[in-house]
Design a binder for these strands. Structure first.
Length: 410
DNA sequence: GTCAATTCACATGAAAGAGACCACGGTCTAGTG
DNA sequence: CTAGACCGTGGTCTCTTTCATGTGAATTGACGA
């Protein structure tokens, strides 16, 4: 009985006219065959890394640029080419890519090195060994044969911010201990001012060469989107103006190509789900809303209990202050902390100290859930002015999630 | 009115603790020959 | 005799607490015009 119904459903699903011909083209892990508007960077990188082919250690390289400016893509592109050429010429080249932002994988000194060892085929326990020991294993593996190693550390700024620059110091010095192999570092950073608070010794050796990835402008984004859209969608389903609008949205957000592509993909998904024959401009607005909402709800529901409780009290107090006309919707740390403590006793949670709450608020700020600004109220002290940074319709849903989590019936 | 000192209510830093996870080596135990 | 169970030690890592120090401008109060 159920089978019959489902069959009908699937048939319906199959018969639906799909807008996409290949959705994966718009996904973030897709590697395009050629990279647009990055010729200059590609050439520079190729020049620097080219010395590999002469069996010489290339200079350490450093790439800056905001998110979605094609840093990772370009580096991977060049190193892949390099790898295949090196293979032809019988050069021992090893390229190791690590993203330092991956939680519980490569976000501490120990784990990064462990991860590097793992990608070289070694085996290291997740924890338990002294860090020095892990370094020893690493050098041992690297030095086991004559080879050149390119170490790509993506999102390196995150790593240094969390754990300090000792890794970089050790890695840059490692060459002097190696007898057979040579390693070069390729750092990729989102932050332009990253090197400023680096140990000067590390700084000079790490950024022997620097390459800057400027944000794409709206026109360049259009080119990129057009190229991908041609592959991703069936011909003629994309309304005129859609690409332009996507590009414009993304250009406003510091030229983030990843954003633009996501926007296009989600718009397509929305149009497809509502069984529209064409991808229209209206879908883009819907898509942007959806992306934002998903992001926020995702973050909120994946937060630990304490953070959620705090967030809940912020939302609660935000509502109350809206009812009272004479108070604008600005909240201060003290008020929030008081309410937070009350809520904690209500849901039988041990309240944290204000010191910690202060930190959590700035964490939420970083995540873009709240906006916090440190202000001085003169005689009445110095505090953080906090506003909720999420839309009302998202907020309602978010509150539901939190209340359900805490077992509130209301 | 002007100016420096005061003062508030936190922000921000540094250090250290708690507790979870884990590897390693040594010791104990039970099963085997 | 030996494999496996079971410690104790020492390591990493995250989340917190404790203690200490920093700070921007409204307020205050002294001062001079």
């Amino acid at each position: 009985m159920r089978g019959v119904r489902l069959k009908g459903f699937f048939e319906n699903f199959m018969n639906k006219e799909f807008l996409f011909s290949d959705k994966s083209v718009l996904q973030s892990n897709y590697d395009p065959e050629n990279i647009q508007h990055r010729d200059q960077q590609i050439e520079q990188i190729a020049n620097i890394l080219g010395s590999v082919l002469l069996y010489q250690k290339p200079s350490n390289l450093f790439c800056y640029g905001k998110t979605g400016t094609g840093k990772t893509l370009t580096i991977k592109f060049v190193t892949n080419d390099l790898l295949s050429i090196a293979k032809e010429k019988n050069i021992n080249l090893e390229v190791i890519y690590t993203n330092c932002k991956l939680k519980n994988t490569a976000d501490t000194e120990y784990r990064v090195i462990a991860e590097l060892i793992r990608s070289l085929g070694g085996e290291v326990p997740k924890t338990g060994l002294p860090t020095q020991e892990v370094y020893r294993i690493f050098t041992h593996i690297i030095d086991s044969k004559k080879q050149l190693v390119l170490l790509i550390l993506d999102e390196i700024d995150q790593l240094v911010e969390k754990t300090g620059d000792e890794i970089l110091y050790t890695l840059t010095r490692m060459n002097s201990e190696l007898k057979n192999a040579q390693i070069s570092l390729i750092g990729i950073s989102n932050s332009l001012v990253f090197t400023d608070n680096l140990d000067p010794r590390v700084k000079s050796s790490l950024s022997e060469e620097e390459i800057i990835f400027p944000p794409y402008n709206a026109l360049q984004l259009q080119d990129i989107l057009n190229q991908r859209a041609k592959l991703a969608f069936k011909t003629g389903v994309v309304d005129s103006g859609v690409i332009e609008k996507c590009a414009a949205y993304a250009a406003r957000e510091h030229g983030d190509a990843r954003r633009a592509l996501e926007l296009l993909r989600v718009s397509g998904e929305i149009a497809e789900r509502s069984e529209e024959k064409k991808l229209s401009i209206r879908n883009i607005d819907l898509a942007e809303e959806k992306i934002e909402k998903d992001r926020v709800l995702d973050i909120i529901s994946s937060q630990p209990k304490q953070q959620q409780a705090l967030l809940y009290s912020i939302m609660k107090i935000n509502e109350e202050s809206k009812d009272i006309k004479h108070r604008d919707d600005s909240l201060f740390t003290g008020d929030i902390y008081e309410l937070y403590k009350r809520i904690c006793t209500e849901i039988k949670l041990r309240p944290l100290t204000q010191r910690r709450i202060s930190d959590i608020i700035s964490e939420l700020d970083m995540l873009g859930i709240v906006n916090g600004k440190v202000i001085s109220k003169g005689r009445y002290g110095r505090t953080r002015k906090i506003t909720l940074a999420i839309h009302d319709h998202t907020k309602i849903k978010a509150k539901e999630i939190l209340e359900k989590n805490f077992g509130f019936s209301r």
